[in-house]
């Protein structure tokens, strides 16, 4: 502590040293400035490269499709551009929005129901041992039952109603969501819980301020995976005899054996899925993890 007080009288030598040190500092700051700019340019080049690679990947897929269409009749493998034209017809006829809207509504309601049940269940299973033991068997069992079987059961139980679509989706993804949040809860930082106890945080504040933020990445991963499952189940449910939705349209295409229609509906569906997964959820992820510096530096 006292070393800073005792300055020895060796002025001239010290000054030289000081200047030498300053020069060095200047040159390093210049160097870091340059390398910083270089790094930024490098990062831009990398994003350009990433986009180019993605575009190349899509072009490759369409080319393979086109090659296949040379060897098979159009009833089995239609030409890519014919199919894209069909997509255009679907979108411009206004059909797309009503059918897609019905499907999206079913997915969102089913998903919301699953979240409302699974997040508290997962948190309780992660925090209370007795609940963990009690709910582990049903959750694991639920996970292993295929979505198709849930769809059959829901339709047998509720008939051809919207309720059966909601139920089938909710029941299919709830176990997966619960498991992900349960495991996440077990890995949360005990020291922060201790801290919140010392400052007498309320139970609500413990959940909202301390536990949930630590689960954000688990919840987001679960949402991604859960949406993937939900898309699959909703199409199956709609195929069973619903009168609208993307699944119904695909079945209609199947009944008149129009490969073009089946593929066109599949493509529109894929595009909407991709927009939701990368656009919406990506945006959600960025906005809830703004507190965390990006960790990209170590990747090649």
């Amino acid at each position: 502590m006292s070393s800073l007080d005792s300055i020895t009288p060796a002025e001239p030598a010290r000054q030289d040293q000081a200047i030498a040190v300053r020069r060095e500092a200047d040159s390093t700051s210049l160097a870091t400035n340059v390398s910083f700019r270089r790094a930024r340019a490098g990062a831009r080049r990398e994003t350009v490269r990433d986009v180019a690679l993605r575009v190349a990947s899509v072009i490759a897929l369409v080319s393979i499709w086109w090659l296949l269409s040379l060897f098979f009749p159009p009833s089995l493998v239609p030409k890519p551009w014919d199919t894209f034209a069909e997509v255009g017809v679907i979108v411009t006829s206004g059909n797309f929005f009503t059918e897609m809207g019905a499907t999206l509504r079913r997915v969102l309601v089913g998903f919301g129901l699953a979240m409302i049940v699974s997040i508290p269940l997962g948190i309780f299973m992660g925090t209370l041992r007795s609940l963990e033991s009690f709910f582990e068997p049903p959750v694991i069992l639920g996970l292993t039952v295929p979505g198709l079987i849930w769809a059959v059961l829901a339709i047998m139980f509720f008939g051809l109603t919207e309720t059966s679509a909601y139920a089938a989706i909710a029941v299919t993804i709830a176990p997966m969501l619960a498991i992900s949040i349960w495991q996440g809860t077990k890995s949360i930082d005990k020291d922060l819980i201790d801290m919140s106890k010392v400052f007498h945080a309320s139970a609500w504040s413990k959940v909202v301020d301390v536990i949930l933020p630590q689960l954000v990445s688990h919840i987001l991963a679960a949402i991604r995976y859960g949406l993937g499952l939900a898309w699959k189940v909703v199409v199956v449910v709609e195929m069973f005899g619903f009168s609208n939705g993307v699944g119904y349209q695909v079945v209609r295409g199947f009944n008149v054996f129009s490969m073009k229609a089946v593929l066109a509906w599949t493509i529109t569906f894929l595009v909407v899925m991709i927009v939701i997964e990368f656009g919406l959820i990506g945006w959600l992820e960025r906005s809830v993890t703004r507190w965390r510096p990006r960790v990209e530096a170590w990747r090649r």
Partner: peptide, 20 residues
């Protein structure tokens, strides 16, 4: 033992709330 998802001042507010 800070709440990394809360701004500096909100970390203090967290304690204020708990301590009423």
């Amino acid at each position: 033992r800070l709440l990394n998802w809360k701004r500096v001042e909100d970390n203090l507010v967290f304690a204020f709330k708990g301590m009423k």
